[in-house]
């Protein structure tokens, strides 16, 4: 009798163990299925405050928007300068080939390239784009509050959010 009960108990244990394994397996499949259904994600660490790099960022954002990607932009140091309300439209600094700045800016105009703020705005209209201003970067350029930055900015955040976002991204860029 004791032996039979022991055997039954063992079967019970095996059944519980099997169910547990199935649960874990199904959970993994479920997670994979959910991941497939989710939009792909782009995280952009935007450091540059120069219009050449901001324009390039705008083009990439357009590509991400066309593909319905979720985008998180983290505005770091020099980019926070460009995002300040009083700077965004008049800042015409370029980061590269600086001796050809006039030619570059004239070409953008000739090609009908939208200002980077317009490209960012369009991407926000077409897909899920969140723009976070790094709190430290904001302070460097005397921007303490969200109202100090252009309306494209969604909030002020810390670097932890960037780490989380980058960790969970399909594409992670630093510009």
């Amino acid at each position: 009798m004791y032996l039979i009960r022991l055997t039954l108990n063992n079967f019970g244990c095996i059944r519980v163990a099997c169910n547990f394994v199935l649960l874990i397996k199904n959970n993994a499949n479920l997670k994979q299925e959910i991941k497939k259904m989710e939009n792909k994600k782009l995280t952009l660490a935007l450091f540059s405050g120069c219009v050449d790099k901001l324009t390039a960022a705008g083009v990439i954002l357009g590509g991400a928007a066309a593909e319905d990607m979720d985008v998180e932009i983290f505005v770091l140091l020099q980019a926070a300068f460009a995002f300040k309300k009083e700077n965004a439209m008049i800042n015409d600094r370029v980061a590269e080939i600086t001796d050809k700045k006039d030619e570059f800016l004239a070409s953008l105009k000739r090609l009908g390239t939208p200002h980077w703020t317009e490209a960012f705005k369009k991407a926000k209209e077409l897909t899920n784009v969140k723009i976070h201003i790094c709190g430290f970067a904001g302070k460097v350029w005397h921007g303490e509050k969200l109202e100090d930055f252009i309306d494209l900015a969604d909030d002020i955040c810390g670097i932890g959010e960037y780490m989380d976002s980058a960790e969970n991204s399909d594409i992670n860029l630093f510009i």
């Binding site: 083009v59 357009g62 590509g63 928007a65 066309a66 090609l111 009908g112 939208p114 369009k122 077409l126």
Partner: peptide, 12 residues
């Protein structure tokens, strides 16, 4: 008359 990614976004 629009440059990349203008046409793609117009299509989208």
């Amino acid at each position: 008359g629009t440059a990349c990614p203008g046409p793609l976004l117009a299509v989208k």
